[in-house]
């Protein structure tokens, strides 16, 4: 950054700014080449090879697409895990979005105890990315003790039973109880993955200009009209941001089954080539899913400035 001063070369203002720009991102650029781009390229390279561990490093044996076809056609679990994960993301993401928008609207009202309510609803933000959440939701099998995790799962499904008992409606009818339990088991995971989406939607709601609210009030709009004609259009750009966030979050979470499969391949079976191939297939699926979602949603977004 300073060498041009030393050399006393007169540079044009824009050229100088350009150099400063490189200066500001320089550190990141070096880091990203060393810690991101090269590893990324390497893992792609592994995926086409049979990786053999030797003292002092790794040796490669070119295999072409062998690893990919093994992952897709030979591995009994991988494609199934992948499909399950896709299905789950597909139905959960819209639910998370609708739910978090709904909660954001509620939390945007003025009422007593709002600060407390907000604090509670954002609590998952600090817990849901860690291993604690794995134990809470009974997802994580700690050291292969499956029985223990079964018990913690049991306690998370029974949560609704608790609530129903609490409200005094437990056991009114068998079917109803079973149905509510099924819904509620998912409520748990939806509520717990909605922390950041709620945060973003709330920020969006607070950005709705006062003028729009006043105009709606003068025109005599009901709360219902207001939601559909004012709130929703203003919030729509955030739907995209939230959508991307939610999809990435669910795909990169280490608790999902496909990811776990890749991990065991790496650590237990030490089959790096196959693990890398799976990771790349996985990444391709994620990208394709995101592409479809972004393409579909982009058309219905309303931008105020356009």
């Amino acid at each position: 950054m300073n060498e041009k001063n030393k050399q006393r070369i007169r540079l044009s203002y824009s050229r100088r700014k350009e150099l400063y720009g490189y200066g500001f991102i320089g550190l990141w650029l070096v880091g990203t080449i060393v810690f991101f781009l090269i590893p990324l390229g390497r893992s792609l390279w592994y995926s086409f090879n049979k990786v053999i561990i030797q003292p002092g490093g790794l040796a490669m044996k070119w295999q072409g697409l062998q690893n990919y076809s093994d992952a897709l056609f030979k591995d009994p679990e991988f494609t199934r895990d992948l499909r399950d994960m896709l299905i789950e993301t597909a139905w959960k993401t819209p639910l998370i979005l609708i739910f978090s928008l709904f909660i954001a609207v509620l939390l945007n009202d003025k009422f007593h105890g709002r600060t407390l309510a907000r604090a509670i609803f954002f609590l998952p933000v600090i817990i849901a990315t860690g291993p604690v959440f794995g134990i809470i939701s009974g997802d994580l099998q700690t050291s292969g003790n499956s029985e223990a995790s079964q018990f913690s799962t049991m306690f998370s499904t029974d949560l609704v039973g608790e609530l129903m008992q609490f409200l005094g409606i437990y056991g009114i009818s068998e079917e109803m109880t079973a149905y509510i339990s099924a819904v509620a088991d998912n409520v748990f995971s939806i509520v717990w993955s909605s922390g950041i989406p709620i945060l973003l939607f709330l920020a969006a709601l607070q950005n709705i200009p006062l003028a729009a609210k006043e105009a709606a009030m003068i025109e005599g709009a009901s709360g219902w009209d207001f939601f559909w004609k004012i709130t929703l259009p203003y919030v729509s750009p955030f739907v995209l941001a939230n959508l991307i966030f939610t999809v990435i979050d669910s795909f990169t979470s280490p608790t999902n089954t496909a990811m776990r499969r890749i991990l065991t391949l790496q650590s237990r079976d030490v089959n790096y080539g196959l693990a890398s191939a799976m990771a790349w297939i996985y990444f391709g699926v994620v990208l394709a899913a995101l592409g479809i979602v972004v393409f579909a949603v982009k058309r219905i977004i309303f931008y105020e400035n356009d």
Partner: peptide, 20 residues
Amino acid sequence: IVILMILVPTQVISLPLFFR
């Protein structure tokens, strides 16, 4: 590349990073 950093799961690059 920054966007790519957001999209790529850590799991994809963790192995080469380990050897790095």
